[in-house]
Nucleic acid binder design. Structure first.
Lengths: 338, 338
DNA sequence: TAAATCTACGAAACCGGTTTCGTAAATAAA
DNA sequence: TTTATTTACGAAACCGGTTTCGTAGATTTA
C-alpha cells in the first residue's frame, strides 16, 4: 500500500489510467457505477494525487508567493492572516519569502518565480527597492503580480494601499491641534513610495497651517536599532527640541519610548507621539500610544482576492486597478493634552 | 522567446534534450565546449527550468512546510526568521500553514502533505491537539517531521524545545524570592505538553518552598481576549488576590496590564508578573516586563537544520533526538521589589 | 432495418524535465 | 595493427498525472 498512484488503482480495478483519472475528476464520460468503484478504492487506499504531477499539465501549482520585507512586524503578520483567509478556500497555498529589506534579496526571489514554482505573487517591496525591472521582468513572463502596502507606483499592476498621505496629514494636524509647533517626521526610506506619501502628508499639513517644513525635523532611520536610538536621542536633545513626532513605522515606537525614558522626557507633556502601528499593546504603553492603525488584515485579504481573481478568470484587464483602504487615527495618551 | 524550455534550447543548438539537460547539470558526460555553448544560450534566453517538472522525477519539491498555530506572535514570527536562515542557503522554500489553534485545521493541512507538495514538515501543534494519529499517518508515508516548541511528546520524531519546566521553575522561584506567596499560573491549554511542563515547573517551585499548590491559582485561558480579560480580572479581584503571576504565553501580557490598569493595581507593588514572551517592547512597558525569553530564532534554525539534514542525507536514525535550547529569565520592573 | 447518435471506456500524447542505457567515434593499450 | 577503453552524445523510458481523440457497442432516430 506504499506509494499509491493512479497506476496502482487502475491495475487493481482493471481499468485504464485515463478512466481512473476521469472518474476521480468526476468526468461526464464515466458511468456512475465506475465512478463509485474508483472512489471507493481511492478512499480505501487513501489515495492522494501528486500535487505537482497534476499541476505540470495545466502549468498551475496552486502556490502563491507572498514577498515581504520581514515578518516580525505586526502589520505584515496580520496581513498574512488576511491573505491566508482569502486564499485557503480557493485551495491555494501561501509561500512566504522574506527580503529582509534587501533589493538583491528581492530580485533573487522574484527571479526564482520564473521557474513556475508559484502561480502569482503578492509583493510589498523592500526599503531599498528603487528599480522596477526585476518586477517588470516577472510580469513579462506573465506571472501575475499584485502589490500591497509598499507598491511600485509606476508599474502597471494592481495595487492595494492605504491612504498614506491623508493619514500622515491627519496625524500631523492632530498634533498641531494639540498645540505642537515643532513636529518631527521619522521615516525609514527616501525611496519607498508610501514613505514619500506619508512625508508629503506631513508636509502638506504643516504648509496648510502656515508652518515651515524644516529639514532638521525630517529623519530617515536605519535598520539598526542602536543607530536609530542615537538618531532619535540626538533629535530630542536639540535646543529647539521637537514637541511632536510622527513616526512612519511601527519599529520606531520602542525607540522613541526608550529615548524619552532615558532623557526623562515626559510624554505627552514634553513630546507628543503618533505612530503608524498595528501593535496590540499600544493600549498598555505608558502613556498609551496614539496610532495610525492600518487595515492590515483587509489589505492582505483584498490583495489576495484580486490575485485569485486574476488567476482564475485570467482577467488581465484593469491592470492598473488601485484599491485604497483607509487607515484610522486612534487617539490615545501619547498625544494627549497633559 | 516565450516559454523557453529545454526542448527549445535543444532545437536551437541542434543537440538532444538529454545533452542539454546534462550540460546544464554539469554532467561529466558532456564536453567542456558543449557545456559552454549550452550555458551561453541558456543565459541569453534567460532559461529557468520548471521547478516542478524537475522535482517530479526525484520526487522532491524543495519545499518545506512550517505549520504554526498563528503568526501574529513574536515567538513564531522570529522562529520563521530562524527557519528561513537555515533553509535558504540549501535552496529550500518555506510554505507557511496556519492552524489557528484548531485541531481540524491542523489535520486537514497535514493530510494535504501526502500529495508530495512538501518534502518535509516543521510542526508546532495547535492548542487543541491531543491526538497524534494525523502526524503518525504522515510519518508513515515517510514525510519527515520535526517538531519545535509545541511537540507531541509520544511521537518518535526529532524535537527542538526549550527548557519549559525549568524556566517556569525559575520564574516562580524568582517571584518567591521577591516575596510573593500567592502565585497564579496562567496557561492556555491543559493538553499542550509545553504548557503542562511549564505548569509542572511552577508547581515544583511551590512545593520546594513548602507552599501549597492551589487550584484557584491555576487558570486556563481561552482564545478570546475579552473572555481572558474577565478571567484575569476576576482573579485579581479575589479577596486573597495573587501577589504574583506567571503567564505562560505572550498574548496574556496585554490582558494582565489592562486589568491592572482598570483595577488600579500597582505593578510590581500589588502584583508582580513574569511572562513567557519575546516581545521587543517588554522594555518600554511601565513597569518594564520581566520575561522568560525563548530562543525563538535558534529554535527555528535548529529545527530547520535538522529537517534539512534528514532530507539530504536521509539519516533516519536518531528519530528520537531531542534538542533543548534554554530560555532566559530577564528580570525587569514588573517583578521588582518596590 | 439502416443510419445516426450516445455512452463509456482505452490508447496515446502531453506537461518539462532527469536518468538509464546503448553506441559511434576517438583514443589508448597490447 | 588489432583490441580495449574512453569520450561525448542521442534515443527512449520515466516521474504521475491530465486530456485529446478514437471506437466498440448500445441506443435512438428515420
Amino acid at each position: 500500500m506504499k506509494n499509491v498512484n493512479i497506476r496502482a488503482l487502475a491495475r487493481e480495478l482493471k481499468l485504464s489510467l485515463s478512466t481512473v483519472s476521469k472518474a476521480l475528476r468526476d468526468s461526464y464520460e464515466i458511468s456512475a457505477a465506475t465512478k463509485e468503484r474508483v472512489r471507493a478504492l481511492a478512499a480505501e487506499w487513501n489515495y492522494i494525487p501528486n500535487a505537482y504531477a497534476s499541476s505540470l499539465r495545466g502549468r498551475k501549482s496552486k502556490n502563491i508567493a507572498v514577498v515581504l520585507p520581514e515578518v516580525a512586524d505586526s502589520f505584515f503578520s496580520i496581513a498574512i492572516n488576511g491573505i491566508e483567509a482569502a486564499v485557503k478556500p480557493k485551495g491555494y497555498h501561501v509561500i512566504i519569502y522574506l527580503t529582509h529589506e534587501s533589493y538583491d534579496g528581492e530580485a533573487a526571489i522574484l527571479k526564482d518565480f520564473q521557474s513556475g514554482r508559484v502561480d502569482g505573487v503578492l509583493l510589498s517591496v523592500s526599503r531599498e527597492t528603487t528599480r522596477t525591472d526585476h518586477v517588470q521582468e516577472l510580469m513579462d513572463k506573465e506571472v501575475p503580480v499584485v502589490f500591497f502596502d509598499r507598491v511600485l507606483e509606476t508599474l502597471a499592476a494592481p495595487k492595494v494601499v492605504t491612504d498614506d498621505a491623508e493619514s500622515a496629514y491627519k496625524a500631523t494636524t492632530h498634533l498641531l491641534s494639540q498645540g505642537c509647533r515643532e513636529i518631527a517626521y521619522l521615516g525609514i526610506s527616501e525611496d519607498l513610495y508610501i514613505c514619500r506619501q506619508r512625508m508629503e502628508g506631513y508636509r502638506q499639513a504643516l504648509r496648510d497651517h502656515q508652518l515651515p517644513v524644516q529639514p532638521r525635523n525630517i529623519l530617515t532611520c536605519a535598520a539598526d536599532a542602536t543607530r536609530n536610538f542615537q538618531l532619535v536621542k540626538k533629535l530630542l536633545q536639540r535646543a529647539n527640541r521637537p514637541d511632536g513626532i510622527v513616526a512612519s513605522v511601527e519599529k520606531l515606537t520602542t525607540t522613541v519610548y526608550q529615548v524619552c525614558q532615558q532623557l526623562q522626557l515626559h510624554m505627552p507633556g514634553d513630546v507628543k507621539l503618533v505612530c503608524f502601528s498595528n501593535l496590540e499593546i499600544a493600549t498598555i504603553l505608558q502613556p498609551s500610544l496614539t496610532t495610525i492603525t492600518q487595515p492590515a488584515f483587509e489589505m492582505g485579504k483584498t490583495a489576495a482576492e484580486m490575485l485569485v481573481k486574476i488567476l482564475e478568470k485570467k482577467v488581465l484587464t484593469e491592470k492598473d486597478i488601485r484599491v485604497v483602504i483607509p487607515s484610522e487615527l486612534v487617539v490615545r495618551g501619547s498625544s494627549g493634552v497633559k
